[in-house]
Computed example of a mutant assay.
Amino acid sequence: MNKIIGFIGCGNMGQAMIGGITKAKLVAPKNIIVGDLNEKSLKKAAEKYGIRTTTDNNEVAENADILVLSVKPNLYPIVIKGIKDHVKENVTIVTIAAGKNIKGTEEMFGRKLKIVRVMPNTPALVGEGMAAICPNDKVTKEETEEVLHIFESFGKGEIVNEKLMDVVTSVSGSSPAFVYMFIEAMADAAVLDGMPRNQSYKFAAQAVLGSAKMVLDTGEHPGALKDMVCSPGGTTIEGVAALEEKGFRNAVISAVRKTTQKSIELSK
């Protein structure tokens, strides 16, 4: 890719993206420019990745062919107001903020631009992110693929219809929190039965990681994989029965749907 990629915001997600891009060698470090008011974060990123940095967002906007707005949702109106007259005419704007739909972003810029709305998640920080990608009608297929490749450099990505973005927010954006709670609960049970705390977290987390990898790598239905572990009259089916008795699946479904509804409310 022979383009300049700009980032406004050098927080955790921004640095996760920069790390993925540089590791995959999608562009040379000199073709990445990052703007942020936090000079400490900029210095850290410059030293680690060899990229260009600045405290002037307009410098980023004037140079970037692909411009990633990696700031908190509440800062979007302020940031966009400051840069909207400085972005290139043919720039592709990438938004990664929950609740910021394409139409709203277009209105903040005051004109129709190429906009790709993306919902990433925090496992991007360890190279295992999941991102939903939705371009507006000005973005070409090739430009959409460029953005997809950026997010696939630190995980996986899928192109989705914007109407699914609220579901994406819950099933992958917010759900890591649910998974962490599951890991913590399993570890607590192991500690209760005598296992040291640090060891219990390792066993529980690795079990979740390996199980997820089996779903992705085998293509088998999760129910079929569950059945493989459940021997007749065995230990696992005893635990499955306890989860069913406590309404485990219904609790998870309710949590995901509640999160989706909250995302819909925030998008209005």
Rank of each mutant, 00 (worst) to 15 (best):
G6E: 06
N12L: 12
M13H: 00
A16H: 03
A16D: 11
I18L: 10
T22W: 10
A24C: 04
L26Q: 10
L26H: 13
V27T: 06
P29E: 02
K30D: 14
K30R: 14
N31Q: 14
I33E: 01
V34C: 15
G35W: 03
L37R: 12
N38Y: 06
A45I: 02
A45K: 07
A46C: 12
K48I: 10
T54Y: 04
T54H: 02
E59R: 07
V60P: 05
E62C: 11
D65R: 11
I66Q: 07
I66S: 01
L67F: 05
V68Q: 01
L69P: 03
S70F: 11
S70P: 04
Y76L: 14
P77S: 03
I78Q: 15
V79G: 09
G82N: 14
G82S: 15
I83L: 02
H86L: 01
V87W: 03
E89G: 11
N90E: 15
T92Q: 05
I96V: 13
A98E: 04
I102W: 03
K103C: 00
G104W: 04
T105Q: 02
F109H: 03
M119Y: 09
P120K: 02
P123A: 07
L125H: 07
V126L: 12
M130Q: 11
A131I: 00
I133M: 06
I133F: 00
C134P: 00
P135G: 04
D137L: 06
K138A: 08
E146S: 14
V147A: 04
V147E: 05
L148N: 04
L148D: 13
F154L: 13
G157I: 02
E158G: 11
V160S: 01
K163Q: 12
V167M: 13
T169A: 12
T169V: 07
T169R: 02
V171H: 03
V171P: 01
S172L: 08
G173P: 09
P176A: 07
Y180M: 12
Y180R: 09
Y180K: 01
Y180V: 02
M181H: 10
M181D: 03
I183K: 06
A190C: 07
G194P: 11
G194K: 08
P196G: 09
R197W: 09
R197C: 06
R197I: 08
Q199N: 11
Q199H: 10
Q199V: 13
K202A: 14
F203S: 05
F203T: 11
Q206A: 08
A207E: 10
G210L: 09
S211H: 08
M214G: 10
L216C: 12
P222R: 05
D227W: 06
D227C: 08
D227F: 09
M228Q: 14
S231A: 11
G233D: 07
T236A: 06
E238C: 11
E238A: 15
G239I: 00
A242H: 10
E245Y: 15
E245C: 14
F248T: 00
N250W: 11
A251R: 05
A251G: 12
S254A: 15
A255F: 08
V256F: 09
K258P: 06
T259S: 15
T259A: 15
T260L: 11
K262D: 02
I264Q: 14
E265D: 12
E265T: 07
S267T: 15
K268C: 01
